[in-house]
Design a protein around this nucleic acid. Structure first.
Lengths: 146, 146
DNA sequence: AATGACTATTCATCGTACTGAATAATTATT
DNA sequence: AATAATTATTCAGTACGATGAATAGTCATT
């Protein structure tokens, strides 16, 4: 079973009906042919940033609204080619056409050094708070390439 | 070590110098800090479509010139959300921003049913030879989502 | 406070992709 | 034809991410 698919179905279910517990959710997913354990749902709920209210689980406005991407380490390993710091900028090269998902994953990290991320076709530009931060991030990403 | 990175370095080495054997290649990569076994190089050479000539390994014009993408089954599993056939077209939905790498991998398959592939941001359109071919491909891709 | 319902986490396992040592197969050289 | 060099493949092992049964922890109800 594909995790992004499952998470998208979870989000759809929340839009269309009240889901008061993980067990409800498990049942609802089962009715759509998705058999999944409670532990997995707990993790999905955490990843999606869902919150439990009196009316059941809801998606707060600042939360994901999109299925989780694969781990950034995997995406960098799969698509990343090189990373260079240039003052407070990080330039990351990816395989052709792959910059976008990698950039999204990088953007989703809680790295305090990173201010923003722009993706082209095979190049990602990360703006860092300062030169030192860029160097630190470069090293971090370089490790994922190792 | 990241496989795309290694394959890109291999391609660069071939552009810049003669590489007469896999052992030469292994040594050249070693000089760039990439330690890799002969078996892996044999596979890389196969994946990249390199050909051995009297002058050493070359990249034929119809071959890759780009590092290999991850297996299509992985990309569909990681990013794919749904697949639907509409006559001789296949519409594949992906997570936001992920259509391009998935489409590239789909395009790289030797599927006789597929004529061409276009990727947007989160949607891929595959043109198939006929309605039946589209249905067959849809089923194949749906299996990767399972 | 006790109990039940619910959620989070641990731990063992699985699937997948990949690697390299060893070996088999192929090619080149003598 | 014999031998050496080279390449391809097998097989065992590794890394990684994910899963669910079991359990721990938390919250709600009585």
């Amino acid at each position: 079973m594909s995790k992004p698919l499952r998470q998208r179905v979870i989000l759809e279910l929340l839009e269309n009906s009240a889901v008061g517990s993980q067990e409800d959710l498990q049942r609802a997913l089962g009715r759509r042919g998705l058999k999944v354990g409670q532990a997995t749902l707990s993790r999905d709920i955490h990843e999606l940033g869902l919150v439990k209210t009196g009316a059941g689980y809801v998606l707060p406005s600042e939360a994901a609204s999109e299925p989780a991407l694969p781990p950034v380490s995997r995406l960098v390993r799969e698509f990343g080619l090189e990373v260079k710091a240039a003052q407070n900028l990080l330039v990351i090269k990816t395989t052709v056409g792959s910059a976008q998902p990698v950039a999204a994953a990088l953007d989703g990290q809680d790295w305090e050094e990173a201010i923003g991320t722009i993706a082209g076709d095979d190049t990602i530009l990360m703006v860092c708070s300062d030169n030192r931060g860029a160097k630190r991030l470069a090293a971090r990403i370089q490790e994922m390439l190792a």
